[in-house]
Amino acid sequence: MTSSTPIAPIALITGGSRGLGRNMAQKLAQDGTDVIFTYHSNSVEAQSLVAEIEAMGRRAAALQLDAGKSGTFDSFAAAIGDVLGQWQCTRFNFLVNNAGMGVHAGFAETTEAQFEDLMNVHLKGTFFFTQKLLPLLADGGRIINISSGLTRFSTPGFAAYATMKGAIEVLSRYMAKELGPRGIGVNVVAPGAIETDFGGGLVRDNPEFNAIIAGETALGRVGMPDDIGGVVASLLRPANGWINGQRIEVSGGVSL
């Protein structure tokens, strides 16, 4: 027998097998949330996270997804339905649109192909992926869209990327307005520079760039994945359900 009200809340995180997404999955599991997450290509890495979450006593499932290929979203929604059925549920509660890729190129050097890749993953992907999954998202659920500190301050080399994230912030306000009648809250989390492999590991692996960002940050360092995952988990707790339509920057106070 299935139930639309799961024993524990269920979160779906895109791009959850590594970097910020992996940390979000870990923090949500620690909070008592079951987690479905997507990975792009590394199934071994994904299954290691499934095992880690299950060791915490929570349910976990990893599904392959290319967030830039909207033509696959119908079949992905069906796969989500299958997982929920196996868990004796019909709905999930939280959607975190985290999947992304980075391009570091000056405005004058950015190619049309780079622009389209960014748009397909960050903007078109988020728009239509969320739209496709609305029937499976529980009333009273919540959505978090991941943006970037680069929509507030400008760092040369990220014009195209920041443009997509700026659009996500506008989209999020419209989502909050239009999904409000279903009790669904929508917020934006905007990380600053974080030490991950994102964008080729620029922040993590380039000491000069890392030092520049740290020098512009009030707390004197760049961010780590732990700085972001806990914020996402906190926003999805019942006590924070009245926060809606907001952009929360998590950057340690960069470029104040």
Rank of each mutant, 00 (worst) to 15 (best):
D117H: 12
V186W: 10
P191W: 04
G229I: 03
T217A: 00
S3I: 06
L133Q: 00
V222M: 01
G201K: 07
R204F: 07
S17H: 09
G245C: 02
S172E: 02
A162E: 03
I7S: 14
N98A: 00
G81C: 08
L171R: 09
Y39S: 12
P135N: 08
V103N: 04
T5P: 04
L136S: 14
E178I: 02
G220S: 08
N23G: 11
K177V: 14
G81M: 09
I80F: 00
I53F: 06
L236H: 01
G215Q: 09
G201L: 10
G149T: 07
E208Q: 15
R18F: 10
S148T: 04
L236Q: 00
T196G: 01
N244M: 05
E109T: 11
R247I: 15
W87N: 01
T196Y: 01
E116G: 10
L219C: 08
S3C: 07
E178F: 01
S75F: 09
G100A: 11
S75N: 12
E54L: 09
R221W: 06
N145G: 12
P6S: 05
A233W: 00
F129A: 02
E216K: 15
S148E: 00
A105V: 15
G141K: 00
E195F: 05
V188T: 13
W242K: 13
R18T: 13
H122Q: 00
R237H: 06
I248G: 03
F115R: 12
A160K: 06
I144R: 05
A62R: 07
E45P: 05
E216S: 14
L123V: 10
Q64H: 03
G215L: 07
V189P: 00
G199C: 11
R247M: 12
Q131N: 07
Q246M: 11
A8D: 08
S154Q: 13
R22W: 10
G125F: 01
A190H: 03
R247Q: 11
A159I: 08
G241M: 04
G201F: 05
F128L: 15
F76W: 07
G19D: 08
G140D: 01
V121S: 00
P191I: 04
A29R: 03
A60I: 02
A77N: 00
F92Q: 02
D74N: 14
